[in-house]
Amino acid sequence: MIVVACIKQVPDTTQVQIDPVTNTLVREGIPFIINPYDTHALEETLRLKDSHGFKAVALSMGPPNAEAALRKALALGVDRSILLSDRVFGGADTLSTSNVISAAIRRLMDEDEIGIVFCGKQTIDGDTAQVGPGIAVRLGFSQLTLVDRIERIDTGARTITVRRKLEGRYEIVEARLPAMITVVRELNRPRYPTVPMRLASAKAEVERWSNEELKLDVNSVGLKGSPTWVSRIFSPQRAQGEILGDGMNDPVAAALMLVDRLVEGDLLAV
């Protein structure tokens, strides 16, 4: 049985800054990292490999340099890393991304049974949380989002029980395998690669699948297969820090000002 971790190489958004003069993105020297949520998806895949003997595969769609992320996955212990890269895949939104990824998973299904596809709950550059459900729907897998604990996996009965972390509550859900699971950070603590694994991964092969392998209609992938497009990008209004009132001499007034700000901003749940 194969367990797949879908990962994405993203620019480290915490390092993205807006040039105050030109009002454009300063991207110089911003490194690419594995989407932090995906590192937990990867870790869970590896844990299932360790505990159940499943075959762990890391999958990523992206430009050729996304190979770095897949190489890191190899260093962490996946059995195979596959990069889905093709010019026609470029500029994809979530709908055409899930199309490419599910086509790749389908191709893996020809080789062996797929048990679980893990995705991070969202990416830090897009924050959409849509590719996971997209994959589940396209493949007809059970869809389990926001999972923070795997309760049990019954390979005989082909079921999985997980805990989902929702607003103010948890749900224990049982579903049929194969399943697509998106994970939250609380699920596990990602491992760190050992040096021998790193050295080995530097030479290991990252498979490259282009549309020649996946044979998708070029109008259903990349920019052409994307219903949404970005029409404009602009800098947000950045709220500067504000010191409220004179807290030293009139703390009550300062507190009232604060509550007013929170109410204005509709930030309170009360």
Binding site: L25, D125, V230, S231, I233, S235
Partner: peptide, 8 residues
């Protein structure tokens, strides 16, 4: 981009 830019 983590809230660094707005996109329409």
């Amino acid at each position: 981009f983590g809230g660094n830019i707005m996109a329409t």
